[in-house]
Design a binder for these strands. Structure first.
Lengths: 207, 207
DNA sequence: CGTCTATTTGAATGTACTCAAAAGCGGTGG
DNA sequence: CCACCGCTTTTGAGTACATTCAAATAGACG
């Protein structure tokens, strides 16, 4: 069974026919590292499920600053729901941090799917519900935790992502600069020196 | 037609029977100012639609600091989706800022409703979708805007709420202290003195 | 009126930022 | 294979914005 179908089956159960129908509307796509999936100004036509690789969603503000909104790895959906639904041009960019493989559903296919297999309405409701809950948590964590704690929480929660994504992008996700993150990491070194040797040749910085 | 039904009819259309069935599962509730709707530790049994009044959702951190997550006025849903769905005890508090009237749906009633009138699955999917999109925007605005701009954006977007809610709670919603908000407001005074007298008669700006 | 809460203001502190530059790492082409 | 180039990470110094603590003023409500 594909990664996507097994993901779906955690929430709803499909007959073989329903599963086959669903698979028939999917579009597959490969992306090379650094390629864009979506660029600012596009009208977003698909929602994307990641079967392989890692992507990031970010926005660029007036000052040219990038703000990372989301990382997506295997088993995650990504895209821009707002543009996907409204058809408005997106303000977001999504690009591949690694070579990627995606399964995509178009708006039309999804609407048809909702009518033909209403269970999918439930599947996506639950997905979005979970996404909503976790975004809410993120708002709270930005408001109530200092940056260092947010970083610790991040590596706790997404240890896999932390390994695959450059620090300055994690910094952006956390809402701080790369420099600040670097200093935070340095201060964690002193705090718990045991954990510092995890990767390999990483010596504690030394003045 | 009730406020709730007219809200629903913006997204799905119901037959009179479906509407009647829906209304039959609703529970009405009144709340006096300062009363709790939900308290930390509760297992949340209902989602609540506000037909009258104004409520706030907040969390208290280890240091005893309150963090306002949401305000809800007429036409909004409020509650704790996470606890509502999982049954876990909530970490949130919701209380009434004014005397309130609510319509409530229980988890069981909602599940039954989904089965009997699957269109509701769509209604709530769309609701949550919108909530998700706007929370995402909030994350971005916290990350990329200074507090003063966030405040300006807030009063633009929710002029009604701004009138009804004490400043220190707006400050909390914005993720800043009441003192900081007070200084921000003072600085807006100098910046655009014309707007400061909005309520009474408009004098030509004059330093 | 008096009490309680909300708002404002001041002064000192702190956290994260900007600007700038050095060091580290990785990929590419000669 | 190595030298070079570009990008990432680190470090330093000075700055800005928001915080804390404290106290005064202003409003609301009984």
């Amino acid at each position: 069974m594909t990664l996507l179908l097994s993901h779906i089956s955690k929430f709803i159960s499909l007959t073989p026919e329903e599963a086959a129908y669903f698979e028939s509307v999917l579009i597959r796509k490969k992306l090379r590292k650094r390629q864009y999936l979506i660029q600012e100004g596009d009208s977003v036509k698909y929602e994307h499920f990641v079967t392989k690789g890692c992507l990031r969603t970010y926005e660029i503000d007036e000052k040219g600053q990038e703000h990372v909104i989301q990382f997506a790895v295997e088993g995650w959906w990504t895209g821009d729901l707002h543009s996907f639904i409204s058809g408005d041009p997106t303000t977001l960019n999504i690009d591949a941090l690694e070579d990627c493989e995606l399964e995509m559903v178009s708006r039309q296919a999804l609407e048809d799917l909702y009518l033909r297999v209403p269970k999918f309405e439930r599947y996506f409701r639950i997905l979005i519900q979970n996404a909503f809950i976790s975004t809410n948590r993120r708002v709270l964590s930005i408001m109530k935790m200092p940056a260092a704690d947010r970083y610790k929480a991040f590596i706790e929660r997404y240890p896999d992502i932390e390994q695959r994504v450059p620090n300055h992008q994690i910094a952006s996700y956390l809402g701080i600069t790369a420099q600040s993150l670097s200093r935070i990491r340095a201060s964690l070194w002193n705090e718990k020196p045991e954990q510092s040797v995890r990767i390999s040749h990483a010596d504690p910085p030394h003045p």
